[in-house]
Simulated assay, not measured.
Amino acid sequence: MDFTLDSDQTALTDAIDRIAAQYDAKPTEFHGFALAGTALENELAEGEYFDIAQIPEYGPLTAALAVERLARTAYAAETALSMLLRAQLPGEWPRPLAVVENGRPGRFVATAKTLIVIDGSKISLAQPAAGDVEAVESLFAYPMGRLIGQPQLTALSDADAATVRTWLRVALAAEASGLIQAAIDSTVEHLSVRKQFGRPLGSFQALRHRMAECAVLAGGVRHLTRKAAASGDAGDAALAALHAQDTATRLVYEMHQMLGAMGMTLEHPLHLWTYRLKALLSELGGRGGQAQAVAEHCFA
């Protein structure tokens, strides 16, 4: 599949990159877990970037590229569902969006205007009132919340629910792809400047081999995600989400181990990406759920 961008797509991704670059660095005075990207979301909304998947010149592939890039910032912003899923919902539903899966707390639930409520095989949509949701303290580097009320649910048909599941997987994979790359970049920077035995850590062959394997895995996630976004195929989406969650499981361990003691501190920004990856690992049924979907859609 050819992923070469045309001039319009290139101009848009360049604009996204300029916006994202303002939010790449962690503020020096911040030592918490969730760095909320409210200002980033506001800037994207003002520029109408959340609607790019619906514009024929751009489409879902360009939206996936935007989600990847925005996920690499230090700030957690609700971009993936708004850019990739909202256009697939039946009717008009306001952003930001969040997923409530089988009653568990979820990312951005406390501030969402539209909830995708997953209950087993059923999917419904809801617009919660202020008292229907509450914020939840969490170690995950996302603003977390849970549903405590009973908003009116709009049940989706089986066909619409299948479409939503497909694009939930594409959105998960696109966000994970950006987080994985940011974690790798942060680790490479550390290995380049940190010295042991008078040499940068990155000069040791064992670490270089491990980083090379991580880069290969990240590339696989990136290409599977772009293929799924371009095709909109349920099997492609399941494969992308499965590889993203499987790769993230390994890379979170690798990145923190390579940073040593610094990887266990809030001073270093690595956790702003790896702890967000941790939150993604259990979504949509986790790796088991994605493997089941691959079996159903690719090997029926």
Score class of each variant (00 low, 15 high):
residue 36 A to C: 07
residue 33 F to P: 00
residue 1 M to S: 14
residue 6 D to T: 07
residue 2 D to Y: 03
residue 43 E to D: 11
residue 10 T to E: 12
residue 7 S to Q: 14
residue 29 E to N: 09
residue 59 G to N: 11
residue 50 F to H: 11
residue 18 R to H: 10
residue 13 T to E: 07
residue 62 T to A: 15
residue 19 I to A: 06
residue 44 L to A: 08
residue 57 E to L: 15
residue 24 D to G: 03
residue 68 E to C: 12
residue 65 L to F: 10
residue 15 A to F: 04
residue 49 Y to E: 01
residue 63 A to V: 11
residue 20 A to P: 03
residue 43 E to V: 04
residue 11 A to M: 05
residue 8 D to Q: 13
residue 56 P to V: 04
residue 28 T to D: 10
residue 36 A to F: 11
residue 14 D to L: 15
residue 63 A to T: 10
residue 55 I to G: 01
residue 43 E to I: 05
residue 39 A to V: 04
residue 51 D to H: 09
residue 60 P to A: 11
residue 10 T to L: 15
residue 19 I to G: 00
residue 5 L to I: 04
residue 22 Q to Y: 06
residue 48 E to Q: 12
residue 14 D to V: 03
residue 67 V to Q: 05
residue 10 T to F: 03
residue 56 P to H: 06
residue 51 D to P: 00
residue 29 E to P: 01
residue 47 G to L: 14
residue 26 K to W: 02
residue 52 I to E: 03
residue 4 T to S: 15
residue 51 D to I: 00
residue 48 E to V: 00
residue 36 A to H: 12
residue 53 A to K: 03
residue 42 N to K: 13
residue 25 A to W: 04
residue 6 D to Q: 10
residue 24 D to L: 13
residue 58 Y to H: 15
residue 53 A to S: 15
residue 67 V to G: 07
residue 47 G to P: 00
residue 67 V to L: 07
residue 5 L to D: 03
residue 25 A to E: 13
residue 25 A to S: 08
residue 42 N to I: 02
residue 50 F to N: 07
residue 35 L to Q: 02
residue 39 A to Q: 08
residue 42 N to D: 14
residue 56 P to S: 08
residue 23 Y to F: 15
residue 38 T to E: 14
residue 7 S to Y: 03
residue 8 D to C: 09
residue 50 F to M: 14
residue 16 I to M: 06
residue 67 V to R: 04
residue 17 D to C: 08
residue 60 P to C: 05
residue 64 A to F: 12
residue 42 N to S: 12
residue 25 A to K: 10
residue 28 T to C: 02
residue 38 T to K: 12
residue 67 V to F: 05
residue 68 E to I: 12
residue 18 R to F: 06
residue 50 F to G: 08
residue 4 T to F: 12
residue 51 D to N: 07
residue 32 G to K: 05
residue 46 E to R: 12
residue 63 A to L: 11
residue 26 K to H: 00
residue 49 Y to M: 13
residue 44 L to M: 15
residue 53 A to R: 08
residue 66 A to E: 08
residue 6 D to S: 06
residue 41 E to L: 09
residue 10 T to R: 13
residue 10 T to H: 05
residue 3 F to N: 13
residue 45 A to F: 02
residue 63 A to I: 09
residue 51 D to M: 02
residue 14 D to R: 14
residue 49 Y to F: 14
residue 59 G to Y: 07
residue 2 D to P: 14
residue 6 D to R: 08
